[in-house]
């Protein structure tokens, strides 16, 4: 009897604690989301009332919009190259910095700094570095003997790699810190006993580090993938989708439709296609992850 009362009380208290989130979620997220579903089935622009048009926005997006598919291709390209590079880069950096040597914290700070740089500032810095004819980067490349260095953000072939380089500047950010925290959770004695068994560095990495780090890898991959799919600000500031639409990512296309051409209903339908895709992707990822994430990640 007492136990039961305690549990009820506990559950009420628990809900009380999460109440701020519950209210915030209903007010600032769920409400707007529901409204945007309604809008996605209507034609809505400036100073007019939304007009119900059924599924036609969705049909238009998937069949009648050339730029939709261009933006999908660009985004997939970006995700496919950026996510592995960023994950491996961050992991390598974390392995390097997972030492208690003197002064290592200074290095950690140095590598973290880019990730606290405002994206507008970052874009300005890199546009300036990438400037093909006066830029410092191409000057250095020419010094190294490359007679025709890439034209970076000004060329459709090199604009996406350019944007990836900009983003890779941030590999020492939160992602790397999460790896580092994960590495420091691995008990030292595991390595010691493996050494006694005669394991070399590589064995230790494969059989101890990777499995025990899998929760961190799991978390980092999914957040990186989601961020990468939603890439927006860097292209908005640095290239505005160009040249030749080579950096028109999905979120840029959505923004243009909704805020540049004022097809708000259509923009909402693009957003919902996006969200459903990301959700399915995440669910699939969670499902597959059970096979390789080493121990019960207490996320659920």
């Amino acid at each position: 009897m007492r136990q039961r009362y305690y549990l009820q009380r506990q559950s009420l208290t628990g809900i009380l604690y999460i109440l701020p989130w519950l209210v915030g979620f209903m007010l600032f997220i769920l409400g707007p989301m529901l409204y945007s579903i309604v809008l996605s089935f209507s034609k809505y622009s400036l100073a007019s009332t939304p007009k119900f048009v059924g599924l036609s926005n969705y049909v238009e997006a998937l069949t009648g919009d050339d730029i939709f598919w261009i933006s999908v291709k660009n985004t997939v390209w970006y995700v496919a190259f950026f996510v592995p590079l960023a994950t491996i880069g961050s992991l390598a950096l974390a392995l390097l910095l997972n030492n208690q040597f003197k002064g290592i914290s200074i290095f950690r700070t140095i590598f973290y700094l880019p990730s606290v740089t405002p994206i507008v500032a970052m874009a300005l810095i890199w546009v300036w570095i990438f400037t093909p004819d006066f830029g410092i980067l191409n000057y250095l490349l020419m010094k190294l003997g490359i007679s025709k260095p890439p034209r970076w953000l000004a060329s459709p072939e090199w604009s996406k790699p350019g944007i990836i380089i900009m983003q890779l500047w941030k590999i020492g950010g939160p992602r790397m810190i999460i790896f580092l925290a994960g590495l420091q959770e691995i008990p030292e004695r595991l390595y010691e006993s493996a050494e006694i068994d005669g394991a070399n560095m590589f064995d230790k990495f494969i059989h101890i580090t990777l499995p025990l780090l899998s929760p961190a890898i799991f978390l980092n991959i999914i957040t990186t993938v989601m961020r990468a799919f939603q890439v927006f600000a860097i292209s908005y500031v640095a290239t505005r989708g160009g040249p030749l639409k080579s950096t028109t990512f999905y979120a840029i296309h959505l923004y243009n439709k909704a805020f540049r051409y004022f097809q708000l209903g259509y923009g909402c339908s693009l957003a919902w296609i996006f969200f459903v895709f990301l959700l399915l992707f995440t669910l699939l990822y969670f499902k597959l992850s059970k096979r390789w994430v080493h121990y019960g990640m207490e996320m659920y």
Partner: peptide, 21 residues
């Protein structure tokens, strides 16, 4: 009145020509 939309189509179309694509 689809000014921006028309402009964007024209500009990106011409851009392909200026890039000699």
């Amino acid at each position: 009145l689809r000014t921006n939309e028309v402009r964007d189509v024209i500009n990106s179309g011409l851009e392909e020509i200026w890039y000699l694509k």
